[in-house]
Design a binder for these strands. Structure first.
Length: 573
RNA sequence: GAUUCGUUAGCUCAGCUGGUAGAGCAUUUGCCUUUUAAGCAAAGGGUCUCGGGUUCGAAUCCCGAACGGAUCACCA
């Protein structure tokens, strides 16, 4: 911890000490029982005044308006904010006015957590407030909170620096009300999906995060090492292959909300760890899954926002089922005019060239088609749209299309120009699956470092027989972004990945103690203007003495003035 | 990873073509018994992100680094 505290931090530590001196524990151990909260009071008081004659609530002081013997402050609890009214002679019934004059007015600050007991009333300005009879300090805050003020919907001095907000999410949550609501919605969305699945009788399961073979998706994994077994392990990039093993094992429907990890770029739609929901249902195909997915999303939107419609930037998106469906080949035809259904790899390269789509030699047919779609079609799909029937090369875990073996029974759900969900009629033919993995190995040999590894145990499970199954994965973070109107993933993750915080280098008191400075003086050297040992040594002893004793006088330090011989001793060392 | 912009008080930001730092809120001290971005009066608070360079003199100009934002590439 730094020895250098800002003035405001010093003031708060001083207040802490004064509280101790008054016999007040600023961090009391016992529970504080509340009997209501800000939201309930504001909502129910007008219709039932008598129920609020003895309320007890607790929370954080967010603003104070002190006027002599009476004051107002705003208390923020988990449900919202409410105004408190403190009157000196009501807080302090006897002659001793310490609790008001000293504790409330001087020792409490914005950010402190208190509990209060009192009765609810309406001020002359018409605001429902609590008239405080007694209060208790529950936790003293030692750092000043960024103060956000608001009037007529206009926000002043908002705490907006993204770096600070993401690194100190706790402060962000305290001060920026909308942030809390985003995360409450996130949980609502997940609960809503979970209820939907549970109602159908599907089983929520957990599968390994540490995997010996990172299968189920094409992505670069994070690697780690298990010491006891002395083997490499990977953080999962997907959980697909494990969930399918469970379908082999005889469950009709399994699902998992999973943190997946991908060692790739970070930007406003990608975080190295992210949440995916994957579900697998036996005896179904991708057509059924499309119906299921649109029903689920319609319900989730309705339960979260009270409407199937949601706004993101200037777009309005409607989750009302059914969604549009179009095959990837038809989509490319529609947006580029090219029919790529019969094209060879070299023909596809020509088309890419004509369309100005970048390619590289490692790309096979599937990736080329995907590149065209990604660049020319994807961004057109603002309203929820199922893109179906992807080429076989880019879908190694997906069953071949019943009408065309070059294609697969796969769909991706595009919303607001982005992929939100991905689903297959799962490939359950073990021989075909083995061949597909081998093709992936060939792609890998061509330099595609995202092609899949072969998971022999997964193949063995398929050889025991997996029922026809459809599976679907949905990016929870992106869905939350859509349903909360956020455009960056960092806004829907409590703690997005950041570069490690820079440790402020600088001298510590110890560095000065090394050269013989007494402990008492060492802590004052930096504030007095000596920011390095070298700087101190470069000065003349008389100049140092003048400076330090000047500092001592200015800050009224309770210690003797420093003497020349002491300083000369430092300089000799 | 590339390009680009940014980093000044606890927070939000000014600071013109280089002359040694300002505002509002927050803090401290007064006054104020129903205010509401409370008000009035006064005060304190800054290694101008860091390291070099140019200069008599750098928050300001130049070079480099760190961190962050935006865009692009890869990907969900």
């Amino acid at each position: 911890m730094s020895l250098i505290l800002s003035e405001q931090e010093q003031v708060r530590r001083g207040a802490l000490k004064e509280m101790h001196d008054l016999g007040i524990n600023p961090y009391p151990p016992e529970a504080y029982e509340i009997n209501t909260n800000s939201e309930a009071i504001l909502r129910d008081f007008p219709s039932n005044e008598s129920a609020f004659q003895d309320v007890c609530i607790a929370g954080r002081i967010m603003s104070r308006r002190i006027m002599g013997a009476a004051s107002f402050c705003e208390l923020q609890d988990s449900a919202g904010r409410i105004q408190l009214y403190f009157k000196r002679d009501d807080i302090c019934l006897g002659e001793d006015k310490t609790m008001y004059n000293t504790v409330f007015k001087r020792l409490l600050d914005i950010g402190d957590i208190i509990g209060i007991r009192g009765y609810v009333f309406v001020t002359q300005m018409g605001e429902i407030s609590v008239h405080v009879r007694e209060f208790k300090v529950l936790s003293k805050s030692l750092r000043p909170l960024p103060i956000v003020k608001e009037k007529d919907g206009q926000i002043y001095d908002a705490f907006t620096d993204p770096e600070q907000r993401y690194r100190m999410r706790y402060v962000d949550l305290i001060v920026n009300d909308a942030v809390k609501h985003t995360f409450i919605k996130r949980t609502k969305i997940i609960n809503s999906m979970r209820n939907f699945f549970n109602e159908q009788g599907y089983l929520e399961v957990e599968t390994p995060i540490l995997q010996p073979i990172p299968g189920g998706a094409t992505a670069r994994p994070f690697m780690t090492h298990h010491n006891a077994l002395d083997i490499p392990l990977y953080l999962r990039v997907a959980n697909e292959l494990y969930l399918k093993r469970l379908i082999v094992g005889g469950f009709d429907g399994v699902y998992e909300f999973a943190k997946d990890f991908r060692n790739e770029g970070m930007d406003r739609t990608h975080n190295p760890e992210f949440t995916v929901m994957e579900i697998y249902v036996a005896y179904k195909d991708y057509n059924w899954m499309m119906d299921f997915t649109e029903r689920m999303l319609e319900r989730v939107a309705l339960e979260t926002n009270g409407s199937t419609k949601t706004n993101i930037q200037t777009q309005e998106i409607d989750f009302k089922a059914p969604f549009k469906r179009i095959s990837i080949i038809d989509s490319i035809k529609e947006h580029t005019g090219f029919d790529v259904s019969q094209s060879s790899e070299s023909e596809l390269r020509d088309i890419c060239k004509k369309l100005g789509v970048d390619t590289d030699p490692a790309m096979g047919k599937g990736k080329l088609i995907d590149a065209i779609f990604g660049e020319k079609c994807e961004h057109h799909y603002i309203q929820p749209t199922f893109i179906t029937d992807y080429p076989v090369e880019m879908s190694p875990l997906c069953k071949r299309h019943r009408d065309n073996p070059e294609l697969t029974e796969r769909f991706e759900l595009m919303i607001n120009g982005k992929e939100i969900a991905n689903a297959y009629t799962e490939l359950n033919d073990p021989i075909d699956q083995r061949n597909r993995f081998e093709e992936q190995m060939n792609l890998s040999a061509r330099g595609d470092d995202e092609a899949m590894f072969i998971d022999q145990d997964f193949l063995r499970s398929l050889e025991y027989g997996m029922p026809p199954t459809s599976g679907m994965g949905i990016g929870i973070d992106r869905l939350v972004m859509l349903l909360t109107g956020n455009t960056t993933i960092q806004e829907v993750l409590f703690f997005p990945q950041m570069r490690p915080e820079k440790i402020r280098k600088g001298v510590s008191a110890d560095d000065f103690i090394q050269i013989g400075v007494s402990t008492d003086w060492a802590i004052h050297l930096v504030p007095a203007g000596f920011v390095s040992v070298e700087m101190l040594l470069a000065e003349k002893a008389s100049a140092i003495q003048a400076k330090l004793n000047g500092y001592r006088k200015k800050n009224k330090l309770d210690m003797p003035a420093i003497q020349m011989d002491e300083i000369e001793a430092w300089l000799k060392k």
